[in-house]
Design a protein around this nucleic acid. Structure first.
Lengths: 251, 251
DNA sequence: CTATATCGAGAGCGGTGCTCTCCTTTAGTC
DNA sequence: GACTAAAGGAGAGCACCGCTCTCGATATAG
C-alpha cells in the first residue's frame, strides 16, 4: 500500500503537507469571509511563514482560487452523487430527483461562499482551466442524466410542446452535448434536452436567488417552496415513481 | 421650468455635477473592468482630483457601489417596462411575457457587469438599504404581475398540481407578498404564486448561467433555447395570446 | 564531496481604501 | 460689507494587498 515512493525525500513530503495546509487555511478563510476577502498574506500569517513563501506553492491568488473552485465542484458533486445513490429504489426517479435537488440546496446553504465561488460572479481574468471541467460537470451531470433517463422512459406520455413555431431542426445544443446525449439516448428529442437544461437552470436559479438574498421578502417557507417547485419540475419532465407496480421490482 | 431654486449657490450645483461625474466615471470603469476592479483612486485620477476628495461625495466604496446597484436596477427595470409597453395588444399576454423576458436577457448581455452587480455574488458587508428595494422590484414586479394577471384569467384550464401531499395551508409566501398578491387577485391559489416565483427563478437562472459561462459547452443557440424555454414557461402558467377572438377586442 | 535544484525569509514596488489635518472658498447673518 | 460657520479640495500617512527579487540555508542527485 506504500505510495509511489516510501519517502522520496522530506522535501516532497513537506511540499504535499504544506500545500494541504495552505488549502485548509484558505478554505477556512473562504468559509468565514468570502472569496473577495481571501488574502494570501493572511494565510501565510496563519501558517507562520513569510508572505513570499506561499508563491512556491501557488503561482498567484487566482491559482489558489482555482484550486478552491475545483474543490468546491468536487465537494458538491460528491454530495449530489451520494444523495442520489442513497435512494434505495433506483427505479423511483422522482425520489432520486428530489434527493439530488435537495442535496444541491443543502450543500449551498451549508457552504454559501463556495457556492458563490462556483455559481456567483466569476473572478476576473479567470478562464476555467482543463482541470475544472471534470469536476464542474459532476453535479450537473447527475441531474442531466437522470432527466435524460426519465425522458426516455415516459417519452410517450409527455404533453406535446407548444406549436408557436419554434425551429426544430438540430442546432440548439452544443456539438459536445449532442455527442453525450445521443450516445446515451439516441432517439431523444432535442426540445426535451433543452427542457432539461431549463430545469437545471431553475434549480440553480432558485438556490442562487435564495442565497444571495433575493427571496428575502418573497418566500417565507423556502424549504416548502423549493420542494414544491422541484417536484413540479420533475413531474413535468416525466420523472416518476415506479408507476403502478408496487411490488414487482425484482433485480 | 426653472428648478426649485435657479442657483442655490454654485456649491449645490457643483455638488450635483461632480456627483454625476463620479457616477459616470464609476459606471465606465464598472462596464470595462467589473466591480471587483472598481477603484476609487482610479476614478479620482480620471476626474483630476485628489483621492481623498471623493469621500466628500461617497462615504465609502460600498456607498458608491450601492449607488451603481440602484442605477442598474432602475436601468433594467426601465428596459423591461418599456419592452412590455411596446406590445400593442395588451391582451396578448404571451407576447408581453416574451418581450419582458427577452428585454431582461438583452439588457444582461449588453451590461454583463451590471447584471453581475445585482444578481451575482453580493458584495461584502452590504445589506440592501431602503432606497434599493423600490428599484429592485421594478423588473421583477413586471414579471410577477403579468403572471398573476394570467393566472387569474385562465385559472380554470390550468392542470392540477401534483398530489404528492404538499402542504396547502397558507405559509409558503412572505407576509409582504401575500398583501401584494391578495390585493391584486384575492382568489389566487398560493401554489400558483410559487410557480410564478419558479418561472422568475428560471429566467434569472438562465441568464445568469449564460452570462457566467456555464452554458458554454452546453447550448449553441442561446437565443433559440431561451425563447423556447420562456415560451414553454408562459404556456404552462397560462400566459396566452387573446384566445379565439381575433378581432373583437374593443375598448 | 560537490554541483544543483528547492525553498524560506526579507526588503521592496506599486497599488488599494480610508483618515486626518490644513487651508481655501462659499453661505448665511448681523 | 465684515464675520462666523460650513463645505470642500489637497496632501501626507496608515495599514493592508498581490507580487517580485535577491540571498542564504538546505536537501537532492551525480
Amino acid at each position: 500500500m506504500a505510495s509511489e515512493r516510501p519517502a522520496r525525500g522530506i522535501r516532497e513530503r513537506n511540499r504535499r503537507e504544506l500545500t494541504a495546509e495552505i488549502l485548509a487555511s484558505a478554505r477556512r478563510h473562504l468559509a468565514e469571509h468570502g472569496s473577495a476577502d481571501l488574502s494570501l498574506r493572511a494565510i501565510t500569517r496563519d501558517l507562520g511563514m513569510a508572505s513570499s513563501a506561499i508563491y512556491r506553492y501557488f503561482a498567484s491568488r487566482d491559482d489558489l482560487l482555482t484550486a478552491l473552485i475545483i474543490e468546491a465542484y468536487n465537494d458538491l458533486g460528491q454530495m449530489v452523487e451520494d444523495a442520489d445513490e442513497r435512494v434505495a429504489n433506483r427505479q423511483d426517479l422522482a425520489a432520486r430527483w428530489l434527493a439530488i435537488c435537495r442535496a444541491l440546496r443543502d450543500w449551498a446553504l451549508a457552504n454559501p461562499h463556495q457556492w458563490a465561488l462556483i455559481y456567483g460572479t466569476p473572478i476576473q481574468n479567470y478562464s476555467a482551466p482543463e482541470d475544472t471541467i471534470g469536476a464542474a460537470t459532476r453535479a450537473t451531470g447527475r441531474m442531466m442524466s437522470l432527466l435524460i433517463e426519465a425522458s426516455t422512459d415516459g417519452a410517450s406520455d409527455r404533453t406535446v410542446r407548444n406549436e408557436v413555431g419554434l425551429r426544430s431542426e438540430v442546432g440548439l445544443l452544443s456539438p459536445m452535448l449532442y455527442e453525450t446525449v445521443w450516445g446515451a439516448a439516441p432517439n431523444l428529442r432535442e426540445e426535451q434536452v433543452v427542457e432539461g437544461v431549463g430545469a437545471w437552470a431553475q434549480v440553480i436559479g432558485l438556490v442562487t436567488l435564495e442565497l444571495f438574498g433575493h427571496l428575502n421578502n418573497v418566500i417565507a417557507d423556502r424549504d416548502g417552496s423549493f420542494t414544491q417547485l422541484v417536484v413540479g419540475m420533475g413531474d413535468r419532465l416525466g420523472v416518476r415513481a415506479p408507476s403502478n407496480s408496487y411490488v414487482a421490482v425484482e433485480e
